[in-house]
Design a protein around this nucleic acid. Structure first.
Length: 884
RNA sequence: GGGCGGUUGGCUCAGGGGUAGAGCGUUUCCUUGACACGGAAGAGGUCACAGGUUCAAAUCCUGUACCGCCCACCA
């Protein structure tokens, strides 16, 4: 093994080897224990992967590698999403730099450009996942625009259409004037804005009085077709049906009664613009009001807005209208007002609610929704953390119909075909539609719109496995086991996969939904392009290695808590990788050639205390890492691995083993080597899901059995090796040693002069002595456990811990006064702690009401404190006697 | 307006009814034959605040404050 670990060359070498050997394919591994499937959330082809993706794919890879070691036939199916609106936007931005719009290119040429983009970024994304070390089955990689995937979408659409779940209608929808498309409700992002509330006076047409309305959007008044007041509002009693003169126009509009007008807000009168506000639209429908579209799809005022305003942008028109209202004297007041404004999730342009013909999927009240709710409520599909269960159900229970048509070019064309006579139907093909309508295919016109991206991603877990065909993959790997995803697409994606999965396959799409931590920057802000605070995973891999990045992310990603991440968190993990490398190198260089690894460590052999202790702790680590993986507590697993390896294995066991290696007991050497190797090899298998490259590299450098650590079996707990007594047998001497060292430091006596130790505890004196000498060879311990001083040396016994005394010969020059002060301080502390425990024990309520366990523990605490106090007092006495 | 999460040593976070834990940082010592991306020893917290329940509260309950997120037809 090289003295320094080089992640870069190691990672590249292993990934290529794994891939060439087809290790990632479920068919390759010995798999007697069933299947385990993950269809990874397909990233958008909009750009490269960010840290959130790195967390996502790292977790899934770790879960997959773990399950593979458990003997499962593991399929992790990768892919990318065409991401309609998002991708169209980035390509539009790209061509804008050439001074072009998509309309300059035309649909066909523009789509060519998008495909070029897709190829470039799709490949980059795949190589990024591979750089992370992801053991995904690349032969099964899917894209949401693959032919067979498209077939699944057509199937979905036609089935829903035939079931009456898809309809076309004119409704007020969310329109993004910049993207020039409709959006669904959940693609709108609300942001708080400082604005104004404009109070405008509408005079009655008969010249008798007026009504003042308040609005945040004065420009929409040009499309007002009524003013509404609450029927119970005494201020407007009997005024229903009276006509108002709409300012700046010559139109007359009615005053209507509708309970949607709140009496508490402003004057209680609300202007009604049915074509540009969802509530107003509903009110307009209730009252049969005309709907005037005054703002067009481009965000500019239409001819309906009047000659004066037509052609102005919404913003320009607002200024003009306010100015004109001021001039006409109708502007009563301008109030500062903070409210939230809907914006486009993709381009952040302010949404225009717009009356428009769109395709909708019926959601509310359908069995599709009911079944999804039932699956979540019954926990047939389990959410982790479980609070997302309630959130998901709430959303589904209040679901509205879903606007699925988009006026985009990049996406799946809606499979609706229109005949000349206006009749239309849905079909997978033009020919199919022609047959349904009884006309010729040539006479049909296909709808120009495309489908919402999420309409296609909703099928991901099963369309990727071949649905609607009854494929072998679908039968074998569906339902999948876990969906690991980001919180922000819980409704957009997760809920919809559950809906469609149950609807179309009759089965839930996955058992568990694991919502992982969001990666934030150091200040707790979202990482985003506009803030420029993102960190490029590939750059970090290049700098620290993939294993270090993976480990740092998983170690920080505790369940339900967001991660504040910055580059300076990675060295911690990188240092751990280095530590593992160096320890392995040390172990490896000390292994004798004849090590027989078929002789795995068993329980029956006569191991020394430190050997039994490390084997025992290894069992605990196996248990913790296994259960933490099962409950998605990857941070806990990482911490268990780190603590065990660094503290228990390196700092204690490996250090101790040096004394054996230095000695001349051949049998002891062979034994310790076997334990060193066994623990390390087991650790590598445990750590492999988290740091695949490093573990593979070391595993191969060590004696091993097999071709890859990927296919080794997951370690199990060997109860026979669980040995708390041995752990204590190792802990105790370490405690003594700390105290001996402290005492020597305190006394100013070199530790080399320490020869004798007296121990009153029930310990194996020989073992303690040997462990002590192993950790500090400077100790010239001649005897442990004997009070008799050989050779008639004179000196005094200083208690160093409750049951241990060390001998200080007269020759030592000792700072007794300093020691005295220190012991007195310790006594005070012990007394305080003793008083606290005794206070508890003297409380009759505690004795009678507390659990037996708690009382027992307190009694033990009291005894320990008393013991400690006694020792300290003896110490003090010993020193005092010495001081004379 | 409703809901959810958070508030623990300088920083980032675990934990969770029985006298506070980790990593990083920091202090002192150590270039000892795996590792200075290291080792040894140490300092450092009345667990946001106020009430309550309990023999016992950092932990459970109620409320408050602040931070963050989500939802809602906040003219």
């Amino acid at each position: 093994m090289e003295s320094k670990y080089d992640p870069k060359t190691t990672e590249a070498r292993w990934y290529a080897q794994w891939r060439d050997a087809k290790y990632f394919k479920p068919e390759s591994a010995p798999s007697p224990n069933g299947t385990y499937t993950i269809t990874i959330p397909p990233p958008n082809v909009t750009g490269s992967l960010h840290m959130g993706h790195a967390v996502c794919y790292t977790i899934q890879d770790a879960l997959g590698r773990w399950q593979r070691q458990l003997g499962k036939k593991v399929l992790i199916l990768p892919g990318v999403d065409h991401a309609g609106i998002a991708t169209q936007n980035v390509v539009e931005k790209e061509i804008a730099q050439e001074g072009l719009t998509r309309h300059d290119l035309g649909r066909e040429k523009f789509l060519e450009r998008v495909w070029i983009w897709k190829k470039r970024f799709g490949e980059r994304i795949i190589s990024q996942m591979q750089g992370l070390g992801c053991a995904f089955d690349w032969d099964r990689e899917r894209f949401t625009m693959d032919d067979d995937y498209v077939d699944a979408i057509l199937e979905e659409f036609v089935r829903m259409f035939d079931a009456g779940m898809i309809y076309r209608g004119a409704r007020v929808i969310n329109w993004c004037p910049r993207c020039a498309t409709a959006l669904s409700d959940i693609e709108v992002e609300y942001v708080e804005r400082d604005s104004h509330l404009w109070h405008i006076r509408y005079d009655f047409a008969d010249g008798n009085g007026s009504v003042t309305v308040a609005t945040t959007r004065p420009e929409t008044m040009l499309g007002d077709t009524a003013v509404a007041v609450n029927p119970d509002d005494p201020r407007y009693a009997g005024m229903a049906g009276r006509e108002l003169l709409l300012p700046l126009t010559d139109r007359r509009i009615p005053l209507i009664f509708d309970s949607y007008a709140s009496m508490e807000f402003g004057t209680g009168a609300v202007k009604v613009t049915p074509a540009h506000d969802l509530n107003d639209y509903e009110a307009g429908k209730r009252h049969g009001l005309p709907m005037m579209v005054v703002i067009g799809e481009s965000g500019k005022m239409t001819a309906e807005a009047g000659d004066k305003y037509a052609g102005l942008t919404r913003e320009e028109c607002r200024e003009a209208v306010v100015e004109d209202l001021e001039a006409s004297g109708n502007l009563v007041q301008i109030e500062d007002y903070k409210h939230s404004v809907g914006t486009c999730e993709r381009c952040h342009t302010i949404i225009e609610p717009l009356l428009s013909e769109q395709w909708f999927a019926r959601m509310a009240g359908t069995t599709m929704i009911a079944n999804a709710i039932a699956a979540i409520e019954s926990e047939e599909i389990k959410f982790v953390p479980d609070r997302y269960k309630r959130i998901s159900v709430d959303w589904l229970e209040n679901i509205k119909d879903w606007c699925i048509s988009r006026q985009l070019w990049w996406g799946h064309r809606i499979p609706i075909y229109y005949a000349h006579d206006g009749k239309f139907t849905a079909a997978k093909t033009r020919e199919g539609a022609a047959a349904r309508l009884g006309v010729s295919p040539e006479s049909l016109r296909q709808d120009d719109d495309v489908l919402d991206t999420w309409f296609s991603s909703a099928l991901w877990p099963f369309a990727t496995l071949g649905w609607p065909n009854d494929t072998e993959d679908l039968r074998e790997f569906y339902p999948t086991n876990v969906l690991t995803t980001a919180r922000e697409i819980l409704f957009l994606w997760v809920a919809r996969m559950i809906m469609t999965g149950i609807e179309f396959t009759g089965q839930k799409p996955f058992d568990d939904v694991y919502i992982y931590a969001t990666v934030l920057d150091k200040q707790g802000r979202r990482m985003s392009k506009s803030l420029g605070n993102g960190i490029d995973p590939l750059e970090m891999i290049d700098k620290y290695g993939a294993d270090a990045l993976r480990f740092s992310l998983m170690r920080l990603a505790s369940k339900g808590q967001d991660i504040r991440f910055s580059e300076d968190r990675i060295p911690e993990a990188r240092n751990f990788c280095t530590k593992i490398w160096n320890a392995a190198r040390f172990v490896n260089m000390n292994l004798d050639d004849g090590l027989d690894i078929t002789q795995r460590v068993g329980a029956n052999e006569a191991y020394t205390v430190p050997e039994r202790a490390i084997l025992s702790k290894l069992q605990a680590t196996v248990a913790t890492v296994s259960s933490s993986l099962a409950s998605y507590d990857l941070d806990v697993a990482c911490e268990a691995l780190r603590g065990f390896f660094w503290d228990d294995y390196c700092d204690v066991f490996v250090e101790w083993s040096k004394s054996v290696q230095r000695g001349d007991d051949a049998a002891a050497k062979a034994r310790v080597q076997l334990v060193l190797w066994h623990v390390l090899e087991t650790f590598l298998r445990l750590a492999h899901p988290f740091m695949p490259y490093l573990t593979e590299e070391i595993w191969h450098a060590l004696p091993h059995d097999g071709d890859t650590v990927m296919y080794t079996l997951w370690p199990t707990v060997n109860e026979a090796l669980v040995d708390p007594a041995a752990e204590e047998g190792l802990n105790a001497p370490q405690r003594y040693l700390r105290e001996i060292r402290a005492a020597h430091q305190e006394l100013g006596v070199p530790i080399q002069e320490q020869q004798l130790l007296q121990i009153n505890e029930d310990v194996d004196a020989a073992s303690v002595s040997s462990i002590l000498k192993a950790f500090d060879p400077r100790l010239a311990l001649a005897n442990v456990g004997q009070e008799q001083i050989e050779g008639g040396a004179t000196g005094f016994w200083l208690p160093v811990s409750a049951n241990v005394q060390m001998f200080l010969p007269d020759s030592a020059s000792i700072d007794l006064a300093g020691l005295q002060t220190k012991i007195k301080k310790q006594i005070a502390a012990t007394e305080k702690s003793l008083a606290s425990v005794q206070g508890k024990l003297n409380n009759p309520n505690f004795i009678s009401k507390a659990s037996e366990e708690a009382v027992t523990k307190s009694r033990a605490d009291e005894a320990a404190n008393l013991n400690e106090l006694e020792k300290q007092q003896r110490q003090l006495a010993a020193v005092a006697a010495r001081l004379g």
